[in-house]
Amino acid sequence: MINAFLVFNGQGQPRLTKFYTQLDTQIKQRLISEIFTLVSNRPPGSCNFLPLPPLLAPPANADPQQHNDVPSLVTYRHYATLYFIVISTSTESPLALIDLIQVYVEALDRLFENVCELDLIFNFETLHATLGEMIVGGVVVETNLDRIVAGVKAQGTVAKRPVNEGRGSGGAGGFASAVGAGLGMGGMVWHGR
């Protein structure tokens, strides 16, 4: 089961937070900052999996064999200015999670037509809608790109980024190209190979 799906940028500012359990706002923020610290200290060429942040670390006397429900896998991908994080239990396939992030980004790319961080900032409702088409209650329900995009579009028109907020300003631009590169490699791509 997927326990949380997070998107934040290189400065640790959240762009999307989705927790599949109920948590206090403060704890959410702590978790995000812990994961951001982990993710931003990765040496180049590392694999796409993070050690567990202190908040999620199992209690010292926990029996590892006892439960499959404990979140024990933190998968991430890095696209230009953004980090995409999935926290899940060990029952999820790690490779499938990497693929899931890729599908999510590709879906956003289709919806926004060459997506950049700015689109995500101003349309976080669409981010939620897209994620809602893919994951329900922590379970992946759809990975077909066409159907995801169709599902989101059925909910209403997707706003374009504001005209006067140019591409050059702020943290805009860039990550679409990374997606494009990913597209060419058949969906089974990961960084640091």
């Binding site: 326990n3 927790f19 359990t21 978790l31 908040l55 029996d63 006892q66 439960h67 429900d69 979140p71």
Partner: peptide, 12 residues
């Protein structure tokens, strides 16, 4: 109860 981790969804 002690082992219930943050974010965990208990399916037991």
């Amino acid at each position: 109860a002690k082992q219930q981790s943050l974010l965990q969804v208990d399916s037991s």
